[in-house]
Simulated assay, not measured.
Amino acid sequence: MIRVVLADDETMIRAGIAAILSSDAGIEVVAQADDGRQAVDHVLSTRPDIAVLDIQMPVLDGLAAAEEIWRLRPQTGVVMLTTFGEDEYIERALAVGANGFLLKTGDPDELIAGIKAVADGAAFLSPKVAKRVIDQLPRKSVGARAKVTTLTPKETEVLALVGSGLSNADIAATLFIVEGTVKAHVTAILGRLGVRNRVQAAILAYEAGLVQSLD
């Protein structure tokens, strides 16, 4: 069961999102909040797998809440949910360590898929968001390539698959290794590259030329 804390300051939207998530038998909304401070408190008290945060909230906005969650409880994956598609929100969400970024205007199935992907250890960006992010990245950055050279050949192979959006289970199946070994490789990769999470690692993989462009 994937345990979720949901935060959105608009009651009807929050209820709608909760209904969508609860429609899946594998997801349980364990707490709801109407501001970012409450969201952080609920995460610390309920220790969920995922925190779904609206970006614009009172007291503490979603981006600030995401950063606190990453600092205080990095085991909880963070998915940002917003009606906005402006580049500044995408960039800031990735910078504070968000594992996923979804638009409220997206398909409900996309929301559920994103929650499951992040819970499974993968990064998840709405296709529209992913395209915008990739379009802004430098092609085959020298700095990114230099960082990747610090990895072992196997870690580089794993990083390329992380960049392609595969979960730990998918990577294990692709490379014919156990999932625990994949997790160990991912942990080592994040440390060597100096990035917070899989989203940032995936972006660096693209910048280094390990992943093909999105069409």
Rank of each mutant, 00 (worst) to 15 (best):
S167Q: 13
Y89T: 10
L21W: 00
P153T: 03
E10H: 14
D35V: 12
R145Q: 11
P74E: 15
P58Y: 04
E86L: 10
L166A: 12
A19E: 15
E110S: 14
L137G: 05
P74W: 03
Y206P: 11
T76P: 05
D170Q: 15
R192Q: 01
A117W: 00
V30I: 13
Q75T: 15
L151D: 07
A208C: 00
V29N: 03
G191H: 06
D35K: 04
V79M: 15
M12W: 07
D215N: 14
D87I: 13
A172I: 03
K128F: 02
F124Q: 12
E86K: 04
L103V: 04
F84W: 00
L214Y: 11
H185N: 06
I69E: 04
A123L: 12
A66G: 11
A144M: 02
I2F: 00
E179H: 00
L72R: 14
T83L: 14
I17P: 07
L63G: 04
D8G: 04
D9F: 06
G163D: 05
T83P: 03
I17M: 09
K154T: 11
A113T: 15
D34H: 11
V158D: 08
L193G: 02
F124E: 13
G209E: 00
A172R: 08
V52Q: 02
V148M: 01
V52H: 00
E68R: 15
A122H: 08
V4D: 06
T11A: 14
I13Q: 15
S167W: 09
M57G: 06
G143V: 04
T150D: 07
E157H: 05
K147Q: 14
E179C: 09
V162T: 02
E68I: 08
I13K: 13
K104V: 11
K131A: 12
E10P: 03
L53I: 14
F124Y: 15
A117N: 07
A201G: 10
G191Q: 12
D61H: 05
L125Q: 07
S141H: 03
R73S: 14
L60I: 11
Q212P: 10
A146K: 12
D87P: 02
E91C: 09
G62D: 12
K183C: 11
K131E: 15
Q75P: 05
V211G: 02
D9R: 03
A173W: 08
I55Y: 00
A146T: 12
K147W: 09
I203Y: 05
V29A: 08
I50F: 06
K104S: 09
V79E: 07
V5I: 13
V59L: 06
V129E: 00
G100F: 07
Q56E: 13
R192I: 06
E28S: 13
A202D: 03
R196H: 10
S126W: 01
G26I: 10
L102R: 05
V129P: 04
A93C: 04
R192C: 08
G165T: 04
G163L: 07
V96R: 01
F84T: 06
E179A: 12
I50T: 03
I189A: 05
F101W: 01
R14M: 08
E88C: 09
T156N: 10
V30C: 06
Q75E: 15
D135A: 14
